[in-house]
């Protein structure tokens, strides 16, 4: 371990951390703007030009609000819940490649914090941990609504994890690797996995909505039935932490979907661009493309939220167990048969 390597990784982690925070903060702003535009309104526009300082104002508000810890709650776990939710949501970014190797100051630097060869499974594990924040927070609040929210969150996450895993298995049959870096490199140019796995992508997308507790599946915090679900008792920055965790989750799942299905930093004609711009600026264009795709997905998340009404709880479970899982299994079988036939030919 040389010093340069450590410095390089430290810088990358810092940049990634700040970028994630910024994206999450501006996602809250974007959410309100998108909601407003879809409803013929203008959205926040008072704090700064076009309301661009709104996230700062919101953050300030969160900081200065009164911190309430209910007397009947379990104090340690009450604090641990949102902390865990925030912590776990950050972990996902570690394995996502944000660009090709870049040449800086005579060194080749990979734009990925770490390329472990079970990257997809790692993401999967981190996602499955995300539910603990909700569960612990909901239980520690000592409130029926919070507990209901926590339990809904847990059962929903477990149910949709299965379909998600099955849809990934079909993808792995095509790609033959669990490493994100290799996955991204396989999709060079326009060979995106979405072409080979449209059904798998659809299943993954629906599950991603469920795993991030976003709108059609936001039953854990369903206002109409559970007031606020698991974060009923939360106020001030702990509430903010939950909200932030949700937006970071959205960012991470968008990044994952872009990387494994939409080619990550690849775009048609990238060889030409890389040839023209060299090894420093070429990959940066890739990074920009990657973020563009991520933002498109985040917009999609919001667009769906402000269009589709919430599912009923039994519909949610029916969709997960009776539709998505059989569909995912069928997808695996079809993919396997096609691959075998193609190999034989």
């Amino acid at each position: 371990m040389e010093i340069a390597f450590l410095v390089e990784k430290l810088l990358l982690v810092t940049i990634l951390f700040v970028a994630t925070l910024t994206v999450a903060a501006y996602s809250t702003y974007a959410e309100r703007k998108v909601a407003a535009f879809l409803q013929d309104r203008v959205g926040p526009n008072r704090a700064g030009p076009f309301g661009l300082l709104q996230p700062l104002a919101d953050g300030g508000k969160m900081f200065f609000k009164e911190e309430i810890i209910p007397s009947g709650s379990n104090k340690w776990l009450f604090i641990a819940g949102p902390s865990l939710a925030l912590l776990v949501s950050f972990l996902g970014t570690a394995v996502i490649p944000f660009g090709q190797n870049i040449e800086l100051f005579g060194r080749v630097i990979p734009l990925q914090v770490t390329d472990i060869n079970v990257g997809i499974l790692y993401i999967f594990g981190v996602v499955s941990l995300g539910v603990y924040g909700i569960m612990i927070g909901g239980w520690a609040s000592n409130n029926k609504y919070s507990l209901m929210g926590a339990i809904r969150g847990a059962s929903q996450n477990i149910s949709y994890e299965i379909a998600m895993g099955l849809s990934i298995i079909a993808l792995l049959l095509v790609s033959n690797t669990l490493s994100f870096k290799e996955l991204a490199e396989q999709q060079h140019g326009w060979h995106w996995n979405i072409i080979y796995q449209p059904l798998g992508f659809l299943i993954f997308l629906v599950c991603a909505f469920a795993e991030t507790n976003r709108m059609p599946f936001d039953l854990p915090e369903c206002e109409t039935e559970l007031i606020g679900g698991y974060n009923t008792e939360y106020s001030a920055f702990k509430m903010g932490a939950y909200m932030f965790a949700e937006y970071i989750n959205m960012f991470v799942s968008s990044a994952v979907m872009v990387t494994i299905y939409f080619g990550g930093y690849n775009y048609p004609g990238m060889d030409l661009v890389n040839g023209a711009l060299g090894a420093t600026w070429g990959p940066l264009v890739g990074v920009a493309v990657m973020f563009l795709k991520i933002f498109a997905f985040i917009f999609f998340f919001m667009w769906v939220r402000w269009t589709v009404p919430r599912f009923r709880y039994d519909q949610l479970m029916d969709l997960g167990w009776k539709v998505l899982i059989p569909l995912a299994i069928a997808n695996i079988v079809i993919t396997a048969i096609v691959i075998t036939v193609v190999d034989k030919l």
Partner: peptide, 9 residues
Amino acid sequence: GMGITFMHM
């Protein structure tokens, strides 16, 4: 539905 909401933008 998403088409409808998009037109509203």
